[in-house]
């Protein structure tokens, strides 16, 4: 990779990039070593049953590299292959990387998870669900061993279902404005509970419920990145420096934080009402302000910054 390519990808949209483009832009030029490379052709054995094409990386790229000179392990989900879903192979790659981080103290003490996933791949639903459970356990065990795990979310598929739970298991979460996260996606809620519960075609509503700005304002994300590779790199570097320990005190603090949020915003019907409850004078303007103004707004809101995760 040349320096020219790197500087171009710096300003490139994270949302529109592929998993490999994100890694190429995020890591120092030439520093990336991939594990289980596509040439090893470790593919899903299950997709053919459904007449679906396989990918030589099964939609997950893993390896190690450097971020501004700092050694990191990385994993990136490809949201444009099967929605970045957790499946037997793609999940096991994440599990293997996280278990290695825990078991081998010579490996980098930071793992960056570039999540871009709608959750579990339904064609391999049980293997995918179990992979999520194994990933969450491996994240926790790595954290308990002193590894910092940072989730970066800003791709087309967001981080839903098992990916939403995985993100919230990490030491830190970085979200961009497009970085939607949650458990059940709006379309599924609409299908199951009706359009009056959640109108998935109402883009402004979907954005206000699941989007990066809402999450950041109530403490559901620890940092807000603008939608560029450079933005995510800068934010990841800051968060890597100050990760909470995985221990009883942290989880007691998270219990208190989540209970307080439920109490404070439990009666709110909309994101605008939540923002009013945060004493944001003009809730509607949250949507329109630029990233810089939003970052300043977050700085003035209590509770968005915490070590309770």
């Amino acid at each position: 990779m040349s320096d020219t390519e790197n500087s171009t990808s710096d300003t490139g949209s994270w949302f529109l990039s592929t998993a490999r483009e994100r890694l190429a832009g995020l890591l120092d030029p030439g520093s990336f070593t991939e594990f289980l490379q596509p040439t090893e052709r470790v593919v899903s054995p299950h997709l053919a049953l459904f007449d679906l094409p396989a990918a030589f990386d099964d939609g997950v790229v893993i390896g190690r590299g450097r971020l501004e000179g700092r050694e990191v392990l990385v994993a990136a989900q490809e949201g444009q292959f099967m929605g970045g879903t957790f499946a037997e192979v793609s999940g096991a790659k994440l599990v293997g990387l996280l278990r290695a981080a825990r078991a081998d103290a010579k490996l980098p003490r930071t793992v960056l998870l570039l999540l871009d996933s709608g959750g579990v791949r339904l064609q391999e639903a049980n293997a995918g669900e179990l992979a999520v459970a194994e990933v969450m356990r491996a994240v926790v065990e790595a954290r308990a061993a002193g590894v910092t795990v940072v989730a970066l979310v800003g791709g087309r598929a967001g981080a839903f279902g098992g990916a939403g739970l995985t993100a919230a298991t990490c030491s830190r979460i970085v979200l961009s404005e497009q970085g939607r996260t949650g458990v059940t996606g709006p379309e599924v809620i609409e299908t199951n509970k009706g359009v009056e519960e959640f109108d998935s075609r109402d883009k402004a509503l979907v954005w206000s419920v699941t989007g990066g700005r809402s999450r950041r304002l109530i403490g559901g994300a620890d940092a807000y990145a603008d939608d560029t590779v450079a933005g995510f790199r800068k934010t990841a570097l800051i968060l890597m420096e100050r990760a909470p320990a995985f221990d009883l005190a942290t989880l007691q603090a998270e219990q208190a934080r989540l209970a307080a949020r439920a109490q404070r915003f439990g009666a709110c019907e909309s994101a605008a009402q939540m923002w009013k409850a945060l004493a944001i004078p003009d809730a509607q303007s949250v949507r329109n302000m630029d990233d810089e103004a939003f970052t300043a707004l977050v700085a003035g809101v209590g509770g968005a910054d915490h070590d309770a995760r």
């Binding site: 969450m136 926790v140 981080a159 939403g164 739970l165 995985t166 993100a167 919230a168 298991t169 996260t181 949650g182 458990v183 059940t184 809620i189 959640f198 206000s208 419920v209 699941t210 809402s214 999450r215 109530i218 559901g220 995985f246 989880l251 998270e254 219990q255 989540l258 949020r261 439920a262 915003f265 439990g266 709110c268 909309s270 994101a271 939540m274 995760r309």
Partner: peptide, 14 residues
């Protein structure tokens, strides 16, 4: 979902 159910479920897991 608006209140961040993913964080609550992950909290119980943790």
């Amino acid at each position: 979902e608006m209140l961040g159910l993913n964080e609550y479920l992950a909290h119980l897991t943790k």
